[in-house]
């Protein structure tokens, strides 16, 4: 797919990416793939799939956190080695990864301070990011004093401050309530527009994918493969009001139709 895209436009390239856990032929699990997929520079791409289909495995491979068993994964044309997260890639997890022992401001400053930026530059960038994420009034607070949504904001800010060109999010709003999810979704769109970064969002929420993404990749039950690519018609300045658009219903319906059988087969996999 998308073989026509030029190299410069391809931000993440996956060719025959497969992941197999275990070496014993009797117990080994084919978790993922093969997957062929190109993420275009600057696009917002969402991946949906039934539980246990290997979404998080795919995420780890794209992030450079774990290697593919087979195939090649590249970021900006350079292969991912599965051990190091390349410069320019920002990662946000589903779980609360805020540092409980640091204030919000120190959390956000963590990465750039470590990279050796000067104190004045650190302060400027942290202040900007805090303001952008609506965290300015909480700069001196500790994560334990914040709500779950605010803590996830801290984690996003901590990633954002490093000015990533690719932002990977693994179910970042999975632990939040529906209203907070919608608001955070809008903020994610704003962030995407203003930074111009490529965004890869892993989610199990079809409406979230349909509302936020330019393209949605639908994954099959294990071993996860991309079985459908759905393009959304929204403009770049969209927000959560697209849920009122009749086309929104059509897209979610198409996603669910593709996913229904896969989800059922995923359930029976679990039972068996």
């Amino acid at each position: 797919m998308n073989v026509a895209a030029t190299d410069a436009a391809v931000h993440i390239g996956l060719r025959g990416v497969t992941r197999i856990f275990g070496t014993d032929p009797r117990t080994r699990v084919n978790a993922l793939g093969p997957i062929d997929l190109d993420l275009r520079r600057g696009e917002f791409f969402a991946v949906v799939g039934p539980s246990g289909c290997g979404k998080s495995t795919l995420f780890d491979i794209v992030a450079g956190l774990s290697p593919a068993t087979d195939g090649t994964a590249t970021f900006e044309g350079r292969p991912l080695d599965g051990r190091t997260v390349p410069e320019g890639v920002g990662v946000v997890f589903q779980e609360d990864a805020s540092f409980a022992w640091l204030t919000v401001a120190d959390n956000v400053a963590f990465g750039i301070r470590r990279a050796g930026l000067g104190a004045a530059e650190v302060k400027r960038r942290v202040d900007d990011t805090l303001a952008f994420m609506g965290l300015r009034d909480f700069a001196a607070a500790y994560p334990a004093q914040l709500s779950g949504g605010m803590r996830q904001r801290v984690c996003i800010a901590r990633t954002l401050v490093q000015r990533p060109r690719l932002i990977l999010l693994d179910e970042p709003f999975g632990a939040l309530d529906q209203q907070t999810r919608l608001i955070m979704g809008e903020e994610l769109l704003k962030l995407w527009r203003e930074t111009g970064a490529t965004v890869l969002l892993i989610t199990h929420a079809l409406d979230e994918a349909a509302m936020l993404a330019d393209r949605v990749g639908v994954m099959s039950a294990r071993p996860g493969r991309i079985i459908d690519l759905v393009e959304t018609p929204w403009g770049k300045d969209r927000d959560s009001r697209v849920v009122a658009d009749p086309r929104f219903g059509e897209i979610t319906a198409r996603l669910w139709t593709r996913l229904r059988d896969e989800s059922m087969s995923a359930l029976s996999q679990k039972a068996g």
């Binding site: 992030a63 997260v85 990662v91 779980e95 609360d96 540092f99 409980a100 640091l102």
Partner: peptide, 26 residues
Amino acid sequence: PRVLHKTAAVYGMSPLEAARRIYLPH
């Protein structure tokens, strides 16, 4: 938590640095 081990990996920390900057404070 596992997510902090992953976070250390995201920052590309050596085990020693991860211990000093993340595991020990946590």
